[in-house]
Write a protein that binds this DNA or RNA. Structure first.
Lengths: 350, 350
DNA sequence: GCGCGGCGGGAGAGCGCTCTCCCAGCGCTG
DNA sequence: CAGCGCTGGGAGAGCGCTCTCCCGCCGCGC
């Protein structure tokens, strides 16, 4: 009963199990990993010995030889402008977006016995360090949430040949797998709904203009509105927070008082817009129709409940986890893209 | 240029760096880990060699000998009743609570170079497996979010002598460190506010009655109300979701139509209560005053903005990370508790 | 001038596992 | 009955690192 440097008792190793079972270390390893033809009787003897000793394989030792960690990293990559201690990251974690992604990933990873490690990268330095750590085997693969269009990380990962899947398409074409939503279709669905309601003075609150998802939603909305005869409409960008939606709505109201329909690029901002409309005394949907995007918990929480475009984020995250695991299993797999279709969820706001 | 089984090129090892630097493996190791007295000139030579080779230490190999992983796990432990694929976990991830905890932990762990691994446990089986994995060294320590009062996991962790810190006190006294909020004080603050406004018919929407935080909020509220002369008030339990708050409010309204003040045990439910009040045509705060709890993003998003009890979760999570790292460094440390004080954040709803 | 202490640095063991060899034993065929 | 293939299982070499042990060198004191 020697003690290791963590102060605990020495834990049983393969060797101990082998001794108890009266076989060699190799055989125990074979049984535990379920490989090759091992005598079924030995099988039982070994498992009994495992139980008796309370053996748990040492992950570090195993990784060292297999070069697999059983861990994938969820990397949230923010732009450099946001300082390391910027509240933005905090804001991001609080956004239902983050939670939905984590939930979706876990639904696939947990049954597969794979750990999820969280990684934030803010600086360029952190980016290269991350790629180094990853190449060296910190994780078997990466699910990447890139928050900034100029982000170099997708390219770095692709170049390093690491197993990676992005949630949301890369800003520039890149040999990297990704899962995305047909954001333009979403924008078009919103436009059709607003047009069908007979809205004549519509406006939009978009996300940051350089974020692909945001740009796509706007493009789809714009194109469909044009098809409905609306050549132009005011558009104010926000940053996906409740607050920015509220501010944007106030600005729109000032610019275009006779406005009767708004498409907002996410539910959080739509909730903010609702608040601004309420403060301005506009009835929703009677005077102004509002359509959100995402169908997050905020959509149901809002009053009136938000008519919104459903973004099946959990499913998308789950799919990205599946793609990643497949790629980890077979590194020769080519980059794949999976595009999900949005749907309109009619509720009270439009 | 041999290739490993991941299909990549062999990565530089300590040996390679040593060769380039013209020193021994041991010396490179010493320089990299900054130990002992190494000739300053060698120092530079070694670092140059590291840069030249693009060396990154292999974490698995290092862990194998140091018995440290540089990882802590955030364990979210749910009760067994919730099946593995129960939507509850999804709900939990979407709750701002989860995001705030993650953000707070990261603010301490990232600068310390420590990874955060996410672990969900639902079944008893998963609990013992987790303890095994942890003892064996899957992570250096655990931040535990135990969602259910009967949860055995805190006890198992304490018994195994693992480094662990709970967020929220354990349901039963246990030799385990924790960080908590003075929830009774929070309840009392709400009671005082309602009393000061002259509310005469108050009610409460509580969380699950067996969850310590929930019970404490209720007890504090009840005690303070008694001091204000209110011997009794109706109380309906919810489960911390928006929806349950809405339902609870409807029930209260039916039971006690002349109600003029409500204390709700979290902001999400308070938001739901606000929606129910709005549907019932009650003006907030003129006819009914509402006080929430947490000061989460939902409080600001609500209309009217929620007067609420601030729960400094990010700070608490950060503190728990600090306690954990200290304990990992020095396993002899005794269990510590840190209790944070809530404050009232006056806004429009009360 | 010799001995001794201290410090810088090399050699090498070993962390716990996987996996390649290799050998023993069995059943089959000619 | 010899020879061959096949299969089950043991021996042992590493995976890449840390850390103990030890040795050689330098500077000091007597």
């Amino acid at each position: 009963m020697s003690t290791d440097r963590r102060g605990g008792t020495r834990l049983p190793t393969l060797e101990d199990v082998a001794q108890v079972a009266g076989v060699s270390r190799a055989t125990v390893s074979r049984v535990i990993n379920g490989v090759r033809n091992v005598d079924p009787r030995l099988h039982e003897v070994v498992w009994n010995a495992v139980d008796a000793t309370g053996y748990v394989p040492n992950r570090a030792a195993r990784s060292l030889v297999t070069r697999r960690t059983g861990t994938v990293a969820l990397v949230v990559s923010d732009s450099e402008e946001h300082a390391e201690d910027d509240p933005f990251m905090g804001r991001f974690f609080t956004d239902p977006f983050f939670g939905r992604v984590v939930g979706g990933l876990m639904s696939v990873l947990r049954p597969a016995g794979v750990q999820l490690a969280l990684q934030l990268v803010g600086s360029t330095d952190a980016r290269t360090r991350l790629v180094g750590d990853l190449r060296q085997g910190q994780a078997d693969g990466v699910v990447l949430l890139s928050l900034h269009p100029e982000d170099e990380l997708p390219r770095l990962l692709a170049e390093a040949g690491l197993a990676a899947v992005m949630i949301g398409r890369p800003a520039r074409p890149l040999p990297i797998s990704y899962v995305d939503l047909a954001n333009e279709t979403g924008g078009a669905l919103a436009a059709d709904r607003l047009a069908a309601r007979g809205c004549r003075r519509v406006a939009m609150i978009s996300g940051p203009v350089d974020v692909p998802a945001s740009a796509d939603r706007m493009a789809g909305f714009r194109r469909a509105m044009a098809r409905h005869g609306h050549a132009w409409f005011p558009c104010v960008p926000g940053n996906f927070t409740h607050d920015s939606g509220e501010r944007a709505m106030r600005r729109l109201l000032a610019e275009q008082p006779e406005l009767d329909g708004v498409f907002v690029a996410n539910d959080l901002m739509a909730q903010g817009a609702l608040a601004a409309l309420r403060d301005a005394g506009r009835a929703v949907p009677q005077e102004v129709a509002v359509i959100g995007f995402d169908d997050s918990s905020a959509a149901l929480a809002a009053r009136p409940a938000l008519t919104t475009i459903r973004h099946p984020l959990e499913d998308m995250a789950a799919e990205s986890a599946r793609l990643l695991l497949a790629r980890v299993d077979d590194p020769t797999l080519r980059p794949t893209s999976v595009i999900f279709e949005p749907t309109l969820v009619p509720r009270q706001s439009a």
